[in-house]
Design a protein around this nucleic acid. Structure first.
Lengths: 179, 179
DNA sequence: TTAGTTGTTCAGTATGTTTTAAACAATTTG
DNA sequence: CAAATTGTTTAAAACATACTGAACAACTAA
């Protein structure tokens, strides 16, 4: 007969692995995902050393992993009175975590395309209007249209992330109550 | 004075690079992103060999890259009458591409957590009800609650992706017209 | 049938990323 | 102050992933 404490730990490990796996979808390495998973199941704030022991990684890796999770607001640093060590807790609100991630990525996508467009549009407009060859003019025109065609998409995503941040999104898609 | 054809090509390369970069956000390698980018700017369906020349990669890489893009529905295979080669065109509707990607990932996330939960819930329920140690009972109960707490999130995402697929989502977030 | 074309698969290699271990910096305690 | 603790940085190693080139399979045409 297996020890009960072991069973609890095994169950937790299964869920922690699953959480780590899903976080890979969001661009986090499995190790960093496991750090989050451990914190998700901890009922007290944990120090770097405690986390290191729990996930069996080097201090350095845990340090950088924690920074990454802090930057993406997946975890929170808390001060414990009388303890010099930093302590961390998991942000358990998955909806919030999702929105943070989503908004960040949509903004990034936007800025990558916008930068490239700003770089390129003047040249293409110039060619469209004043190119020697009518062939080139046509190509420039077509490229301008292809770039312009992305506007609808960016307006669409912008409205979504704006609404997510303002809370308006929840009027259409309310978060169900815990039952 | 620079040649006009070169200017067009340089502009295109800048946008193609930007598209490849944004696709990295969606879990595609830059090389595969460039294949999509090249197809995005082509006004005719392209064969494997033409793509290979355009992106300067090995035939094998382009072959697997195309398969990946086909599987994620970012590109479409078209048959050209009288030509034995396969030809490909880009799916240019970014909103559609986004939704395909989004739905796929949310489903994956769901199934990962669901599988783990199904594995673990019976054991935890058993411990919660019949564990020898009251300590263990409490821990099992807490873990059960933590797992249950994720339900709200999954219901929320499910409604969103269902609405995206049914088209209902566009009632709240219509795609702006091209202007 | 043979020669040529097209596309896929796969072992080996190249490339890039993550992790570690150790050195270091910053802070606290006695 | 020195010694101890905590956390960060970094060079090197371990690992993972993507890419190539060559072999292969499937097909076509002559």
């Amino acid at each position: 007969m297996e020890k009960e404490e072991t069973k609890i730990q095994e169950s937790r490990d299964i869920i922690i692995s699953a959480i780590a796996q899903t976080m890979v979808i969001y661009g986090v390495t499995p190790s960093v995902g496991r750090i989050y998973g451990v914190l998700y199941f901890s009922d007290v704030p944990m120090s770097l050393n405690e986390i290191k022991d729990a996930v069996a990684m080097s201090k350095g890796s845990v340090s950088t992993g924690l920074r990454e999770l802090l930057e993406t607001e997946m975890i929170i640093k808390v001060w414990k009175k009388g303890d010099r060590k930093d302590h961390y807790i998991a942000e358990k609100d998955f909806v919030k975590n999702f929105i943070t991630f989503f908004v960040k990525n949509i903004r990034l996508e936007r800025s990558i395309i916008l930068n490239a467009s700003n770089n390129v549009l003047p040249k293409l407009k110039e060619l469209n209007e004043h190119a020697q060859s009518p062939e080139i003019q046509k190509e420039a025109k077509r490229d301008l249209e292809l770039i312009a065609d992305t506007n609808a998409y960016f307006q669409w995503t912008k409205k979504i992330i704006d609404d997510m941040e303002s809370g308006e999104f929840f009027k259409h898609y309310p978060v169900p109550d815990k039952d």
